[in-house]
Design a protein around this nucleic acid. Structure first.
Lengths: 234, 234
DNA sequence: GGTTATAGGATCGTATACAATTTGACCAGG
DNA sequence: CCTGGTCAAATTGTATACGATCCTATAACC
């Protein structure tokens, strides 16, 4: 699942794709802080490839909204503004009910089994402590929504959700409070239960409420103390 | 509005962006047929730039789904399969009701004025004949949906719709019948009227029906005679 | 001392060069 | 005539070279 962080990197086909995935994982996992400069030279040295491939990867990431490239200045890990964050969650509220209804059409026993498996894993992670566990929890939380998207069997929509979830993870990592809302997991379970009951209207309603809940739990004041200069650049 | 096809090309800043827009316009306008090979050398000669910039433009277009890049084989104007076309329209049905509801929240008199202006132009085009007029009509039809998306004030969603409309245009150009459904324009008008009445439920319902209508008017049989080999490649 | 001018280094943007892969033609063999 | 294989041309993939822009430190001037 994790495309980066494999051993024996030298033996692996190091391509633009690989670099892109590695950087994306690092951003979503918050190993790369928002605003960090991604120097072409540095990255190319790190992966032992030419700048050509790195530029391709950075450009691709900018299309996904995870990296901002500024002409003649370089690429930076995205530092989504509160407004941008709001738009991301607003977009999710607009499309996820549709995804839920579409996925429900294809729901068979095996799909419910996969969902339950994911929820079990998610619950297990919530019991743990530490930063690593928290990262895994954020990731698992996103995976639930991604799995629903994949169950639509619609690749176009799935790609949109990939992007939205990745950007959401970045936003949560940025503006998330230390006190994690533990109700997210419960809401996931409730949504699955409602789908299983066939009560899609209430499931959709809860989904919107759930996304709203995630957003409301963020502390989206401008400039969280540190990178003041970022706010005034450009 | 049309970013390409400007006079005095030599004096304009010919960048990756410009090449990308030019090719996209050509694809959406169907001046470039689906399946056409976009040789890096040829395109670079055409725009009098190096292959580097062309590669960037082609890669960008592949993210938008308008171009397929096959490793070591080159870039081709997308030839969306019927399945892919179905997914595009399915995605639109999933998200456009959400857009409509969100846009309605911001609707003031000036927005309705802009919509009506667009509809007038659309109606004017329907009276005309010829291939040019038909292209303009397809474009205008997409512009209606794009305008609604822009009225959400949500840049993230707007970008998704940009992509979906562009790909839809390609699909319509590919699988569209000679007999154009003239009810699309009427449905646009009805949707606006329903929004103005405040009857969003019916407006959403009609929107879904409208998208469905566009899709149903296509003749999506595999292999429209010509490119048989495309169907079996990769 | 503070401000502006300027020079140097660092970084990005574009073009070009070279390596790797594909493609299509030609030819030998069945 | 068809099949299969080999080689050359064409095209893409990647690396490198060079020019342009930006940032910073230093110094001159007010």
């Amino acid at each position: 699942m994790n495309t980066a962080a494999r051993p024996f990197e030298d033996q692996i086909d190091v391509s633009t794709q690989y670099i892109r995935d590695s950087i994306r994982d690092a951003i979503v996992d918050r190993r790369l802080a928002p605003g960090t400069k991604l120097s072409e030279t540095d990255v190319s040295a790190l992966f032992k490839v030419s700048r050509t491939l790195v530029r391709g990867a950075l450009q691709a990431l900018s299309y996904e909204g995870l990296v901002n490239v500024e002409k003649n200045r370089g690429a930076f890990v995205a530092y989504p503004s509160p407004e941008e964050a709001r738009q991301i969650f607003a977009t999710r509220r607009m499309i996820e009910p549709g995804i839920l209804r579409e996925a429900a059409k294809n729901m068979g026993p095996s799909y419910f089994e996969r969902l339950r498996q994911l929820l079990t894993e998610e619950g297990r992670l919530m019991g743990e402590r530490g930063q690593t566990a928290r990262r895994a929890e954020i990731k698992a939380s996103g995976d639930f929504h991604l799995m629903l998207a994949s169950m639509t069997g619609n690749a176009v929509m799935e790609r949109f959700m990939d992007e939205l979830v990745a950007r959401s993870s970045l936003v949560i990592a940025l503006y998330g409070q230390s006190a994690i809302s533990s109700c997210g997991h419960q809401e996931h379970q409730d949504i699955v239960a409602l789908i299983e009951c066939g009560d899609l209207d209430r499931a959709c309603h809860l989904m919107i409420h759930h996304i709203d809940h995630i957003e409301k739990d963020l502390d989206m004041r401008e400039n969280k103390g540190s990178d003041l200069k970022e706010a005034f650049k450009l």
